[in-house]
Design a protein around this nucleic acid. Structure first.
Length: 473
RNA sequence: GGUCCCAUCGUCUAGCGGUUAGGACGUAGCCCUCUCAAGGCUAAAACACGGGUUCGAUUCCCGUUGGGACUACCA
């Protein structure tokens, strides 16, 4: 256990698992799996006002959906307040931290003054050397940050970064109510949990030197190694947020995306392995390495994700898709959740839809080809294809399908071919009117498979309905 | 304002001193074809700028410009 790699994903439960968090989780997971290490889930819920149990569940749900299994956790920081308290007391006793009685108002005023005078703001250290308690003020605890020398971060992705210690603030580690603050608990937990590598977004870069100083005060050995991942940006190159559309992982599930598509998209946003674009989870694990993680922020590209999703739909087993699509069919009203529809039939239908569906939502919509007694005709389409010339052809088609002994793809094909030969016409002359009659539209799966999956009775019924509609004109 | 990070087609990226600067998404055209897709082929499309270093810079160094993050008793 001593030199085993241990990494963690540490989201705060103040929202759903979003795209950026999911990628951080994925990279941690990949690194752990690639090195036979441990992947730990830690919930950073020290912000009591904004954290909720619902979001904890939502984050876990998102990770489960993506298949990012964790080996330990979820650990909750709110369950460890006594641990933090002990560290704070010790730091206080050792003089590495001190009580600060400055009020928020005073601090705010000093900050505004600094900004107005255009000088860089930093806590002025009023309480650093004075032990004077003030009546009626419950103090915060500040960490005594070294003010000389420099803190060096040898980032696994960015290389060496040097921070002058005089730039570092005496940061608050405990609020006036005694509760510990993020930068502090992160360090305590990483030490306690034996974290060897901290893989996180590069929005944490400026926290790193502060945390390293905390490690030196709290930890025993060396601080962990750091790897700062580039940010994910929206199309306008600002940090990805709700403004850019769906950002929660589960929203993608609801929009009919497959988890492997999202994982594959995310892994290629910032990391590469030559020219390869499509990766199974096993391939990602086998090929993942820090040296091919880029440094620059990436723009989230929904079109490419959609392309990957279409790819995975095309290549997934239809049996699996048949199960996944049921909720979507229930949602669009085509098939009740508990409808007794044969999965084998569903899979057969999906076979004809896979190559023309980019999402499960889209595929569920296309199930209209096969489910439902009536079809709606667009007026223009009807005029163009359900012509007087076509009527006898459709009648003939109906009769032949009615009498067809071998109601298979090949049997159906021979029916169409037979009609073409009889009438001396090309397939196009009958296929398009038939397609319109059977589906109401001009775009559908191949006509033979369409009829086959639809089944004899529905095909005949729809043909009859179309023929009636033609007569009515 | 301060600190830090970043910079190859519109986007994701390959490249690790000498390449016709490669791939992918998207876009356009063609082929295939019963429609729509899928698939195949082709095309347009990039090294931000200026200095160095070097026989030679997309690649190494510095600066400029441009983006971004952080700058809380949030995480």
């Amino acid at each position: 256990m001593s030199d085993k790699i241990r990494v963690r994903f540490a989201p705060s439960p103040t929202g759903h698992l979003h795209i950026g968090g999911a990628r951080t989780a994925l990279f941690n997971w990949l690194f752990a799996r690639a090195n036979k290490g441990a992947f730990i889930l830690r919930i950073e819920d020290t912000d009591l006002d904004r954290s909720t149990d619902e979001y904890i569940q939502a984050i876990i749900e998102g990770m489960n959906w993506l298949g990012l299994t964790y080996d330990e956790g979820p650990h909750r920081q709110t369950a460890r307040f006594d641990v933090y308290k002990a560290h704070i007391d010790r730091l206080l006793a050792e003089g590495k931290a001190y009580y600060c009685y400055c009020t928020r108002e005073e601090l705010e005023a000093k900050k505004e003054a600094a900004i107005a005078a255009k000088i860089p703001y930093k806590y002025d250290g009023t309480c650093r050397n004075s032990e004077d308690a003030r009546e009626g003020v419950s103090p915060v605890v500040r960490f005594r940050m070294p003010q000389h020398g420099a803190t060096i971060v040898d980032d696994l992705i960015r290389g060496r970064m040097v921070f002058e210690n005089e730039q570092l603030d005496d940061l608050v580690i405990a609020r006036s109510d005694g509760s510990p603050v993020y930068n502090f608990v992160v360090v305590v937990d990483d030490v306690d949990m034996g974290i060897t590598h901290v893989i996180r977004g590069d929005d944490h870069i400026n926290n790193t030197p502060k945390q390293i100083q905390l490690y030196k005060a709290i930890g025993h050995g060396e601080p962990p190694l750091f790897a700062h991942l580039p940010m994910i940006l929206g199309a306008d190159k600002t940090r990805l947020s709700k403004r850019h559309g769906a950002t929660s992982v589960m929203a993608y599930k609801d929009m009919g995306y497959l988890p492997e598509a999202l994982n594959n998209y995310l892994v290629r946003l910032g990391w590469s392995s030559g020219d390869q674009e499509v990766f199974s989870m096993d391939e990602m694990v086998a090929q993942f390495d820090f040296s091919h993680i880029g440094k620059s922020a990436g723009v989230f590209n929904p079109e490419k994700l959609l392309w990957l999703n279409a790819h995975y739909i095309k290549t997934s087993a239809s049996e699996r898709l048949a199960e996944l699509i049921r909720p979507f069919l229930a949602a669009n009203g085509l098939l009740a959740e508990d409808a007794a529809v044969d999965s084998a039939w569903l899979a057969k239908a999906i076979n004809t839809l896979k190559e023309r569906s980019q999402t499960l939502v889209e595929m569920a919509g296309q199930m209209r080809f096969y489910i439902g007694d009536t079809v709606e005709f667009d007026q223009k389409t009807k005029e163009k294809f359900l012509t007087p010339d076509a009527q006898p052809l459709l009648e003939s088609l109906r009769d032949r399908l009615q009498d067809l002994a071998d109601f298979s793809h090949d049997g159906i094909e021979s029916v169409f071919k037979g009609i073409c030969e009889n009438a001396g016409i090309g397939l196009k002359k009958i296929a398009q009117p038939a397609r319109v009659a059977l589906t109401g539209g001009t775009a559908s799966p191949g006509i033979y498979e369409l009829v086959e999956v639809m089944g004899r009775s529905l095909a005949v019924a729809r043909l009859n309905a179309a023929i009636e509609a033609m007569k009515a004109v």
